[in-house]
């Protein structure tokens, strides 16, 4: 889906920094990063290990607090939100996908996907339909009663995406979603992201270190190096990736 240049940003940061103190030295995990992700955009955040990608993603998810600068979702400053508002933001506005899936092993897929609905206090009667729809969307309609250990890595990640989507978020933040998958499964996940981005207009920011995948599917590539954002590398997925 082409992004209008005037589209309001779904997420933006203003000179956001995250510093850690290790004894007398200061680690600048994220340093003065200013970036805007437009609503409906599919962006990839590239960088070597330890470049600060995941830290920036956690700042955008409201899981971490910046040392300096600000993170905005729409017009709201995450730094000005209370703990309860941040929790509501994570429940209703963003969905998160992790490299190691983070499905709860003792729950079935259905129960895992139902968790965000429980947290959002969605009515009991409505939950089954929403879980079924999310499972259908990721192609796991026939496996609601399976436990994560009974699924392949790709299936587990699809289930994790279903869990992230079930509360109908407008932003999906994915931290190395293909990092633990073989290349075929990785491509399936990327296809799913593209589908969600195009059909549901979900804004996607994906952290990865796989440049080829990022260039194939993301509309824009952001690169972090030692906590700093490098000059932009605009790309269109249709230019180089599989259509």
């Amino acid at each position: 889906m082409p992004i209008s240049p005037t589209a309001p940003p779904a997420l933006r940061t203003e000179a956001v920094s995250k510093h850690y103190h290790l004894g007398s030295s200061v680690v600048r995990a994220v340093d003065q990063v200013t970036v805007a992700i437009a609503a409906g955009e599919f962006a990839a955040l590239l960088g070597a290990s330890g470049s600060g990608k995941s830290t920036l993603l956690n700042l955008l998810a409201g899981l971490d607090h910046p040392s300096a600068g600000a993170v905005y979702v729409g017009e709201r400053d995450l730094g000005a939100m209370s703990a309860a508002e941040l929790a509501r933001y994570r429940r209703q506005t963003v969905g998160m996908v992790f490299q190691n899936f983070n499905l709860l092993p003792r729950m079935t897929l259905e129960e895992n996907i139902e968790l965000p609905l429980r947290l959002a206090e969605v009515e009991h009667g409505e939950r089954a339909a929403r879980v079924a729809a999310a499972l259908e969307r990721v192609g796991l309609k026939s496996r609601p009663q399976h436990r994560p250990a009974e699924l392949s890595g790709g299936e587990q990640q699809r289930a994790a995406i279903a869990r992230a989507l079930v509360n109908r978020p407008v932003i999906l933040l994915a931290d190395e979603p293909t990092g633990n998958l073989d290349s075929a499964s990785g491509r399936q996940i990327m296809e799913l992201f593209r589908e969600l981005n195009r059909e549901l207009a979900v804004t996607i920011l994906m952290v990865t270190h796989e440049r080829a995948l990022a260039e194939s599917y993301a509309e824009r590539i952001l690169t972090l190096q030692d906590g700093c954002l490098l000059p932009p590398e605009p790309r269109r997925a249709s230019e180089g990736g599989p259509a």
Binding site: A61, L86, A87, Y89, R90, Q92, M96, L115, L119
Partner: peptide, 16 residues
């Protein structure tokens, strides 16, 4: 511990 982290990432607050 990890489960608590997941719950928080999914939107559970401290009271929950």
């Amino acid at each position: 511990r990890r489960e608590i982290g997941v719950l928080k990432a999914l939107g559970a607050g401290e009271p929950e």
